[in-house]
Design a protein around this nucleic acid. Structure first.
Lengths: 170, 170
DNA sequence: GATAAAAGTTAGATATTCCTAACAATGAAA
DNA sequence: TTTCATTGTTAGGAATATCTAACTTTTATC
């Protein structure tokens, strides 16, 4: 449902009118699926929908759509700006994550991105080294200071994780 | 399905035998739901299941469970170690994300964590500033170098995002 | 070993979201 | 204005994952 509201929200900005076909194309589903979802959304007061007519979001639907858009943007920027993931892949991943993440996590992520870019000990120039790191591995000459014994500690931890389980809920 | 395999994988390590009741408790579903899922998993060759008997993963099921565990661990560590999210919340979020994220994204994330902790320009001491940042906001005395005109740029970008849409798929 | 509690299963229902095939409305061109 | 392509809808069905209520098996206790 959130996907539909986000798609409609976007299409509403991009085009004059929002059509079933466009929603279907955007979400990669068939038209009947869109029609039935529009009925559901209409029942819940999230869209104005009369058959054969153009689709519009209600105030509430628009709020949900905008929120999804916001989340998508935060995640997309994290994936591209920080993780340096290809923009098409990042878009897909953001789509999948935007529904599940809690507000607190999103806030933390936003703060983290701001911190990385505002705090000069890190920031853009530091982040550029990450790309090199990914391609060429650890470059001590670019990252000196306290490297001894620290290298690869995290990776080892991650690899031996089966025996060192993080706490589970319930 | 992946949730079930992960839960069974974990329980198998924690306890002598894996029981329907324990799986249900772990995943917060009722027992009949577990029974029917076990039938499905059995059909797909992911568990050995005979009714009224204990549950065991097949080789393949075990691989899937371990992979989920691995993903969970990576995400959990990112959320706690880097984003400084409460460990119970982090566990829930990791649960939700572990199914959707692609391998490439997970790899990037792993590399990023290693980079943050290996590269002394950032690393633990830098990360500690993030907590302060979250609580008290920007502290120029801890982060000096190129702060002018840069502060809050990201946040502004994020807030005005409705007019500046990232690329969409399709 | 009989009986009662705990654990597990079956049956049947609900909610979501998707599909295909067939039909209906709209709008553009001849 | 008639016709045809595009667009949209209905009808009916499938897959997934869940639930409650009722029944069965296993296990533990006396």
């Amino acid at each position: 449902m959130e996907d539909y509201l986000e798609a409609i929200f976007d299409l509403d900005k991009e085009k004059k009118v929002v059509r079933v076909k466009d929603i279907a194309g955007r979400l990669d589903v068939k038209m009947p699926t869109v029609t039935s979802m529009l009925k559901t959304l209409s029942k819940r007061g999230l869209v104005h929908y009369e058959k054969y007519e153009y689709v519009e979001l209600t105030r509430e639907g628009s709020n949900v759509g905008r929120e999804m858009r916001r989340r998508h943007g935060i995640l997309f920027r994290f994936l591209t700006d920080i993780l340096k993931i290809d923009s098409q892949v990042a878009d897909e991943e953001a789509c999948k994550m935007e529904h599940t993440l809690g507000e607190a996590t999103l806030d933390s992520l936003t703060d983290f991105m701001a911190f990385v870019q505002e705090c000069p000990r890190a920031g853009e120039s530091w982040l550029q080294n990450f790309e090199e790191y990914r391609v060429h591995g650890f470059k001590p000459e670019k990252c000196r200071g306290l490297s001894k014994g620290f290298t690869c500690e995290l990776k080892n931890q991650l690899e031996s994780m089966e025996d060192d389980l993080p706490p589970r809920n319930k």
